[in-house]
Design a protein around this nucleic acid. Structure first.
Length: 855
DNA sequence: TTAACTCGTCTTTTT
DNA sequence: GACGAGTTAA
């Protein structure tokens, strides 16, 4: 059911209402493709499509029998259509229609055109926010191909998967048949490294460790070296190692010149741990994120033949967000642009917000020195934001000393002034925002998906989430526990990793006793100790367990069994990844413990495993014969939480300021614009003034995401780490000219102290706002962040499971009554009062507590 | 072996 | 306040 390249004109739906002809102002949409996609989550019902819509779609001749409803409309010029005709709360197949605004090349501004037309030689595009940078890149690629460059010789690199996907789609829209390699730095390197793994002492089936695996490995390395993990937290050591890698400093160089004072024990430990960690990676045939770049940079440096071969292959390299490149990335790009220096770098020094991660803003500032004959094009015309928004953003960023002056121009309307809202505390702030959003939806016809809320630190999302939940406003969060961080998902993935790469030590340690097979800590320690002496992987050692001294008979048997299991599973890789996962689950009996006990938690787990299987199925389908286990693992280890944001969800989006880069929303809130938060105290305490400038840029990035309306908020007191502190306004606020409002706490809306929370009105979680007359209209149902992260696709009323006053049964303690519910997500706990009047707390996630019916 | 409890630590941003 | 690690109780 795939139609590609079909063209038809049709009217589009936004979430819940039709975009009028006038709003579309003559922009023509073209169906690029219709494909079946599986929808993980969506909010609620929207209007049914009109005749004209279906006439248009049916005109394609392929899907005349489709019934369904519009479930989302996205700014990315895509519309999703649910063609599931079962109950709408269930998962069903969906159609995805992709539309692209057909804009012709002659629609470009003069400077955009300049950049597009540039063919040979280095090119630097300094692109302010919202200046159509992606369009320039995609059109330039199209232009290159039209002028005879072979698509094979073009490489486009971005930083995020999202950006890569978007660029890929847009290039595809312009050049439906050309296969252009559009990739992120990490993915590009991962693939290159697959081919040339041996050049850096790896096997082609190497694994990519994510942050938590990396920590785990480092922790065992530290322990083996006899260092106290309390004193030297793996996270800190990892940070030091990472920053060294970002500066291309290997373990040997680090040891030679560690820097720091004589008494710096931390440095001593790192000096010791770094090489050991690197060896452990090598032994596991694994790399961490930084290694992907590092290895490739090394490879290119030490291997002139390979370098020139790749340089020739990638004659036209385009790098987006060049201001965020770190040293290895810079070296890689340079290495690929020597014989064919047709490097096109786009970026904006004012949007450099990753210096803390090793990004070198100097790379973009130095571009003209690196490539003396570079052509420089400035895109200063902003198509995104109102004049009011840009004026404030400009005022703010003007306070940075370290910067090339640049103007932000727009022909857009003046728009409403940028507001500064001051609240009494975080709870009032959250509710105030929820109220605003509700008002704008009710009164101004905004859609939920028009809103975004940004914050400096993830911790701030919680209060906002609560407020949104109370107001029954659908939202999604780009952060926190990602899908691939869930324990059950990690377990299954670890099995896969072990199958793909038997040397993978972290994976082995994770699953050798999951589900329990009687291979305890002691057996594992003995096995590891023996293996260290022997060389080789742990799995191999498991096969020869009988040779390991002191192992009990039972352990030997269990290890042999485990080895057998993995070998058997290894035979099954041919039928696709989804099938393999199914095999893993059944053969290991992984889900046995939950299947007969359908608690909420267990059903979530099962759903997550299903989710993983369907992800694998999608991968299999997308890659056809090229689908490999390694490929799937690579894909899953390189995606992040922001990538899973669903533009079609029809919900308010919450994310950190960092994650916001590259996105745009009609209405933006930036919360907590306060001293010590934004700028962050870490930047304030730092003696490097550049850090403060980076904070300013961060706010700048956030502000320039807004298209029409922008609101900054601050509070008088804020709870930080459980402590209530008075705040100091952010110095940045004085650098702008904002319309300030102090929002008086309206007692009617305040219900957030704990006393109130124990009131039984919360049990049913009724919205505590007064019903508005127009609120009779059906609202999308609630979905908690936890649901979203679970990938649960059924919106639910909260709280699910346990509520205050409910009678419950515990196998040990008998029947009792729930007195309190606490915590969030998987950390949710309930307090139950039993007959004797004694209260106990239970972890919902772990306890065998069962409801026995409502009062 | 599991689940409840207690304690101590860490709190920026993430490919 | 959130979370991990370690301890205790059964």
């Amino acid at each position: 059911m795939i139609i590609v390249g079909h063209s038809a004109q049709l009217w589009c739906y936004s979430y819940g209402h039709i975009i009028t002809e006038a709003q579309m102002s003559g922009v023509c949409y073209r169906i690029i493709s219709i494909k079946a996609v599986e929808i993980r989550k969506f909010w609620g019902r929207a209007d049914c499509p009109t005749e004209s819509f279906w006439t248009a779609v049916n005109g394609a001749g392929e899907c005349s029998s489709v019934v369904g409803m519009t479930i989302g409309w996205s700014k990315r010029e895509r519309i999703l259509y649910d063609c599931w005709n079962g109950p709408w709360t269930e998962r069903g197949p969906c159609l995805e229609f992709r539309f692209y605004k057909q804009r012709l090349l002659n629609n470009l501004t003069a400077s955009q055109q300049q950049a597009v037309d540039h063919k040979e030689g280095p090119l630097l595009v300094l692109a302010g926010p919202g200046s159509g940078k992606t369009r320039v890149i995609t059109h330039r690629i199209a232009q290159l191909v039209q002028s005879g460059v072979h698509p094979y010789n073009i490489l486009a690199i971005t930083f995020t998967n999202k950006a890569a996907r978007e660029m890929g789609e847009r290039v595809e829209a312009l050049l439906p048949d050309a296969k252009i390699w559009v990739s992120t730095f990490h993915r590009f390197c991962a693939q290159l490294l697959r081919k040339h793994a041996r050049g850096v002492g790896l096997q082609p089936n190497y694994t990519i460790l994510d942050t938590s695996d990396q920590r785990r490995l480092l922790k065992s390395v530290l322990t083996e070296l006899g260092h106290d993990v309390k004193h030297f937290p793996p996270a800190k050591v990892a940070a030091r190692i990472s920053s060294s890698k970002n500066r291309l400093v290997g373990p040997e160089e680090f040891a030679l010149n560690p820097g720091g004072g004589i008494g710096d024990t931390m440095l001593r430990v790192v000096t010791e741990a770094y090489p050991a960690y690197q060896r452990a990676l090598q032994d596991s045939n694994a790399v961490d994120f930084d290694d992907l770049l590092l290895h490739v940079a090394r490879l290119l440096e030490e291997n002139p033949a390979l370098r020139s071969q790749l340089d020739e292959r990638f004659q036209y390299v385009l790098v987006d967000e060049y201001q965020d490149t770190n040293l290895p990335q810079y070296r890689i790009v340079r290495a690929l642009s020597q014989d064919y220096p047709n490097l096109c770098a786009t970026g904006d020094p004012d949007q450099s917000i990753y210096a803390w991660r090793g990004a070198e803003i100097g790379n973009i500032l130095r571009f003209e020195q690196d490539y003396p004959d570079a052509k420089v094009v400035r895109l200063e015309h902003n198509f995104r934001s109102t004049k009011a928004i840009l004026r404030q953003a400009d005022l703010l960023i003007g306070h940075n000393f370290n910067r090339k002056a640049k103007e932000l121009l727009t022909e857009n309307d003046e728009g409403p002034p940028v507001e500064l809202l001051t609240f009494t505390d975080g709870a009032a702030e959250a509710e105030g925002i929820a109220l605003r959003i509700q008002d704008l939806v009710d009164q101004a016809g905004r859609a939920w998906s028009d809103f975004a809320i940004f914050y400096r630190v993830n911790a701030l999302s919680r209060s906002i989430e609560r407020a949104l939940a109370r107001f029954h406003i659908p939202y999604q969060v780009a952060a926190g526990v990602g899908f691939y961080d869930r324990a059950e998902v990690k377990d299954i993935v670890a099995y896969l990793r072990l199958i793909a790469n038997p040397a993978d030590r972290t994976a082995f340690e994770r699953v050798v006793n999951v589900p329990a097979r009687g291979i305890g800590k002691t057996s594992l320690t003995r096995l590891t100790a023996w293996t260290t002496g022997q060389g080789g992987g742990l799995l191999e050692a498991a096969a020869r367990a009988e040779e390991v001294p002191k192992l009990t008979k039972r352990a030997v048997k269990a290890l042999h069994g485990f080895y057998e299991l993995i070998s058997q599973l290894s035979q099954r890789t041919a039928q696709g990844v989804a099938e393999l996962i199914t095999q893993v689950v059944t053969q290991t009996g992984y889900d046995h413990s939950w299947l007969d006990d359908p608690t909420e938690q267990n059903m979530e787990r099962a759903a997550n495993v299903d989710e993983l299987i369907s992800a694998a199925r999608q991968y299999d389908a997308a890659h056809g014969d090229d689908a490999t286990l390694e490929g799937f693992l690579e894909e899953s280890s390189l995606i992040n939480d922001v990538d899973s944001l669903d533009e079609h969800a029809g919900s308010v989006t919450l994310m950190t300021l960092h994650a916001a880069k590259g996105l745009e929303y009609p209405v933006v809130f930036i919360v907590g614009v306060e001293q010590n938060l934004l700028p962050h105290e870490r930047a304030i305490n730092s003696d490097d003034p550049h850090e403060l400038e980076e904070e300013r840029r961060l706010l700048f990035v956030g502000m320039t995401r807004a298209e029409e309306q922008l609101m900054l908020t601050q509070t008088a007191v804020r709870d930080i780490r459980g402590q209530r502190l008075s705040t100091i306004p952010s110095p940045f606020l004085f650098e702008m000219d904002l319309a300030a409002t102090v929002v008086e706490t309206d007692s009617e809306y305040i219900a957030w102290d704990d006393d109130y929370a124990h009131d039984d009105s919360l049990d049913d979680f009724e919205p505590i706002i007064k019903q508005r007359p127009e609120e009779d209209a059906p609202r999308p149902q609630m979905m908690t962040a936890a649901d979203l992260l679970n990938g649960t696709n059924t919106p639910t009323d909260i709280p699910r499971g346990f509520s205050i006053g409910m009678d419950v049964r515990h196998p040990q303690y008998g029947v009792g009554t729930v007195r309190n519910v606490d915590g969030f997500g998987r950390r949710k706990t309930v307090t139950v009062e039993f007959a004797a009047g004694e209260c106990r707390n239970f972890d919902i996630a772990k306890s065998p507590l069962q409801p026995v019916g409502q009062r």
